[in-house]
């Protein structure tokens, strides 16, 4: 194999990575110095430039995992299984970031780190717990195919239940505190909106960059197992030849 095989980077990822770095720099400049402070929330509003893109990407990652899960169950495609796993791992990071920025933002805005009335944050918390369960199941190990099937079912369960969780939390907390969807309510200043869009684009690029790397690691692991299997097969067959050459049959 070429040197590529032991390195998960490539021209594309280096380009993507550079774009993410530049993007983050732009986001910092725009977020801290470009966008104006909010009338009510003052500087705290700047947290949404990280919070909203993270939340956005959490659900994008979940959707990717669900798609990968369906494709594994349907076509038994290892490629999609690795995609599902990679996406869940990155998704859990975005999810954690969403929860962290959400509660840090909540402190100055609502005077509490955690408010049970915030539908989307509570939904995301439950999703976080399910994703952690998904990764725990993955790491519990076992037969490669069995692990993939089990994880795929859990991935689908998580995705299918998000709307129900969201609805249940919404009814429960009908006094919802959460900002109306920041993108759609049209109250944002132009520059704030622009910064938010930049944030989402940068995070999406980061997601793609991390996916490529994580996927390649997963794929290399899979190939390594294929090599291991060849060795194991050769060893196993050697048992047989050792046995029969010792006998009268040759």
């Amino acid at each position: 194999m070429s040197a590529d095989a032991v390195n998960t980077g490539s021209r594309t990822t280096r380009l993507l990575g550079s774009a993410v770095l530049v993007g983050v720099l732009a986001l910092i400049l725009l977020g801290f110095f470009g966008a104006p402070e909010d009338d009510e929330q003052a500087d705290a509003v700047r947290m949404i430039f990280v919070h909203v893109p993270s939340a956005f990407l959490t659900y994008a990652a979940l959707a990717t995992t669900a798609l990968g899960s369906v494709m594994w169950l349907w076509k038994r495609s290892r490629w999609w299984d690795v995609v599902a796993h990679s996406s869940a791992e990155i998704g859990v990071i975005f999810c954690g970031l969403t929860l962290f920025t959400g509660s840090v933002w909540g402190r100055p805005t609502w005077n509490t780190y955690w408010d049970w009335g915030d539908v989307r944050l509570v939904t995301t918390l439950i999703l976080f717990l399910m994703l952690v369960g998904y990764l725990a199941l993955r790491s519990a190990g076992g037969d490669e195919n069995a692990v993939a099937t089990r994880a795929a079912v859990v991935g689908l369960l998580a995705a299918a239940n998000v709307p129900i969780i969201n609805r249940s939390v919404e009814w429960w907390a009908n006094r919802t505190l959460h900002q109306k969807s920041s993108l759609t309510d049209g109250n944002l200043e132009d520059l704030t909106l622009f910064t938010l869009v930049v944030g989402i684009v940068v995070w999406a690029l980061f997601f793609v960059w991390a996916m490529i790397h994580r996927f390649r690691i997963g794929w290399l692991e899979h190939q390594l197992q294929a090599v291991d299997l060849e060795t194991a097969l050769a060893q196993r067959r050697a048992e047989a030849t050792a046995e029969s050459t010792g006998e009268a049959n040759q």
């Binding site: 067959r237 050697a238 048992e239 047989a240 030849t241 046995e243 029969s244 006998e247 049959n249």
Partner: peptide, 15 residues
Amino acid sequence: VSVVGGTVTPDAVGG
């Protein structure tokens, strides 16, 4: 039939 090393070999005794 003889089974050794996860494969079937020609019978050892009778050949």
